[in-house]
C-alpha cells in the first residue's frame, strides 16, 4: 500500500506521519510537495498537521487552492483514502471535502495534551479494527479545533454515521469537561459520507509507538492497512 504525505510550506507533522507510514506500518511512503498535480500513484494521502501558509486568513484557507489539493479531490472521488490530521482536517474543511468549519478554541488557548476519544464508528477504513465505544488516548495540539456545523449539517452527519471520534473522559463518557475546545457535541473527527476521507484534530501519528508513551493511535494506521489488504485480498 503506497502512502503519500503532502507537504505545504508550514507543515510540521509531515515527518511524524512519514515515520508512522514508513516505519510503523512498513509501507512504501513518499513526501509530496504541494505543487504536485498527479497523485494517482498513491493509495492513501495524508495531509499532516502544522501551520500551512502560516494559518493566514483562516487555518487551511490558502492551502486548499494548491495543486495537490485538487489532485486529492480527484483521487478521493476515485475511492482513494485521504487522512487529514489537525491542520490537515482544517484544510479538508476549507476545501469542502468535509462539511463544517473550525473556530478558535472556546477558551482561546492553544492546547497540547493527551485526550481521550470515543470511537463512534468502526465501519470506516480508518477505524475498522476498533470497537464502537472503545476509548483511545491520543494527543491534541491546536488553537483552532472548535468544530462548528449548523443544525442541519449536524443532523446530516449523524444520519450518515459520519462522526468517527468524540472527546470523552477516561470511562468513555461524553461530558462538557472532556471537551478541550468547545467542539459541537464533542466532535473530534468526521468522515465524508462515502467514508474514504477522515479528518481528525488529535494526532494518531504521535501515539503510534511505545517509545512515544502510547500506542492507541496505531489503531488508525493499522486499520488503513487492514482495509486495503481486505479489498486487495
Amino acid at each position: 500500500m503506497k502512502f503519500g504525505i503532502v507537504v505545504f510550506p508550514g507543515s510540521n507533522c509531515d515527518v511524524d506521519c512519514y515515520h508512522a507510514a514508513k516505519e510503523v506500518l512498513g509501507q512504501p511512503t513518499e513526501y509530496v510537495w504541494h505543487q504536485e498535480q498527479d497523485l494517482s500513484r498513491f493509495d492513501c494521502l495524508v495531509i499532516p498537521g502544522g501551520f500551512s501558509y502560516g494559518d493566514y486568513l483562516r487555518c487551511g484557507a490558502i492551502a486548499r487552492f494548491s495543486p495537490a489539493m485538487e489532485a486529492i479531490a480527484r483521487e478521493s472521488e476515485r475511492g482513494k483514502l485521504v487522512l487529514g490530521i489537525c491542520n490537515g482536517f482544517q484544510i479538508l474543511l476549507e476545501s469542502g471535502l468535509l462539511p463544517g468549519a473550525m473556530l478558535r478554541n472556546n477558551h482561546l488557548q492553544f492546547r497540547c495534551e493527551e485526550r481521550h476519544l470515543r470511537l463512534e464508528n468502526n465501519r470506516t477504513p480508518f477505524t475498522n479494527l476498533g470497537e464502537v465505544g472503545q476509548v483511545l488516548r491520543i494527543p491534541i495540539a491546536h488553537a483552532e479545533g472548535n468544530y462548528f456545523i449548523d443544525e442541519n449539517g449536524l443532523a446530516e452527519l449523524k444520519r450518515h454515521n459520519q462522526i468517527a471520534f468524540r472527546y470523552c473522559d477516561e470511562q468513555g463518557r461524553i461530558t462538557p469537561e472532556s471537551n478541550p475546545n468547545g467542539s459541537i457535541e464533542n466532535i473530534a473527527g468526521i468522515t465524508n459520507r462515502r467514508g474514504n476521507i477522515l479528518g481528525m484534530m488529535p494526532h494518531p501519528e504521535r501515539a503510534a509507538e511505545a517509545i512515544l508513551g502510547c500506542t492507541d493511535g496505531k489503531l488508525v494506521w493499522v486499520s488503513i492497512l487492514k482495509w486495503w489488504g481486505d479489498i486487495h485480498a
Binding site: L57, R58, L93, F148
Partner: peptide
C-alpha cells in the same frame, strides 16, 4: 471563494 468562509 476565499476571503470569507460561508459556513461560519
Amino acid at each position: 471563494r476565499l476571503l470569507a468562509n460561508p459556513v461560519m
